[in-house]
Amino acid sequence: MKGMTIIVKTISSWVKVLIVLFGIYIIHSGHLSPCGGFAGGVFLASSYLLLMLAFGRDVVERELPPSVALKIACWAAFTFAAIAISGLFFGKNEFFWNYIYQKWLAGAGIEVHFIAAGTISLAEFAIGLLVGALLFLVILNLSTFRRDTSASR
């Protein structure tokens, strides 16, 4: 019998959805309100951490395998680098040039608005996925190691 009692399991399976939703909100409104990709990524990792504490490690491994998490982290890092490099081609020949804002959004009268930041929003999504997937991976590895050593004794 893995995990905790049924009360904890039911409530944590409801709360997990709310935590993921709050993390996504924090990531996508990072250019208007406090926080951004870093804190949102830690929120995404902590939702799976809650699931792991309540249900045990096997359920989490079935829901999000570590190989998939590593692939998500690699693709997020690649996306961040690709956003940086694409500033070289679409603009003033500068690394990290914010070409979406400078070309179409500057002076359009939508200054403090949801879509008004250009590549900053995309880069924040990449950073959030990177941080979340990496922290999830290291917590899973720590718990796996503990299970192995206690089983061998």
Binding site: V138, N141, L142, F145
Partner: peptide
Amino acid sequence: LGSLALMIS
């Protein structure tokens, strides 16, 4: 946080 995980491991 990342370096903490490395040291703890």
